[in-house]
Design a protein around this nucleic acid. Structure first.
Length: 229
DNA sequence: ACCCAGGGTCATA
DNA sequence: TATGACCATGGG
């Protein structure tokens, strides 16, 4: 079972996910910060509030008092922390010349600058790189670690960059368009992660993951038997 | 009542 | 490098 095959299974099961749900690249970036450890529907409420008051804009967010931003994004949780993070991000965004100027940066430079912002970690940075700037970056999240661990494709507790590099290296050989592939793949993993094995007849991928674990158990028990002889 | 959600930072060892 | 505490809302 290759990383590419897993993608194809997921696509067959769920169909295209059409990520990222946002009107503009800036809205993607705001959503990426707000969705940290938070259910997406709560983020939608926060973004709707920002949209309603005309604050879905970097300059507007910088003009607004921090406590007011916090109230706007309250449904997204951690609102005091995230208000500061949004402000940090907007300060960088404006100082750096906005979307058009940022588009001309190399992916590695863009990532380094994103990670330098207090409140933007590896996953948030990669969400922004992939879904706002269309860069070929595979986003690793908790669902990613879980599904690939269950399929015995990774250990699951590797450092972020190690896991990303490992998966990207094995997806690059598929002769496919990478931005589209990474876009759909991460979205499908999240979609699958939400209702994994909660559906009555186990989906094909969960079934495969189960078989994969049984294979592993069989091998290790045989190894133990062999060692006992 | 408890658990989790499309993480990240900071203090500590 | 690697744990643990902390942030906070809303839905199951």
């Amino acid at each position: 079972m290759s990383f590419l095959k897993v993608h194809d299974h997921l696509l067959q099961i769920y169909g295209p996910q059409h990520w990222w749900p946002a009107r503009t690249p800036f809205e993607v970036m705001v959503g990426a910060v707000l969705t940290q450890n938070t259910a997406w529907r709560n983020v939608e409420k926060a973004i709707a509030n920002l949209h309603a008051v005309g604050a879905l804009d970097a300059e507007a967010l910088l003009r607004a008092p921090l406590p007011r931003v916090a109230q706007w994004i309250r449904p997204a949780g951690y609102f005091n922390v995230k208000a500061t993070r949004l402000r940090n991000f907007c300060a960088w965004y404006v100082a750096r010349g906005g979307e058009d100027a940022l588009r001309s940066l190399e992916t590695t430079d863009l990532r380094r600058e994103l990670l330098a912002i207090n409140g933007v970690g590896p996953e948030t940075a990669d969400d922004i790189l992939l879904y706002a700037f269309q860069r070929p970056v595979f986003v690793v999240d908790a669902y990613t670690r879980r599904i690939f661990r269950r399929l015995r494709l990774v250990e699951g507790d590797e450092p972020y960059n190690e896991l990303r590099a490992h998966i990207e290296a094995r997806l690059r050989r598929g002769r496919r368009e990478l931005v589209g592939l990474y876009n759909e793949y991460h979205a499908l993993i999240v979609r699958h992660g939400k209702d994994v094995c909660k559906t009555k007849p186990r989906c094909e991928l969960c079934w495969l993951a189960c078989k994969s674990r049984e294979r592993q158990a069989g091998k290790s028990s045989k190894a133990l038997q062999g060692a006992a002889q």
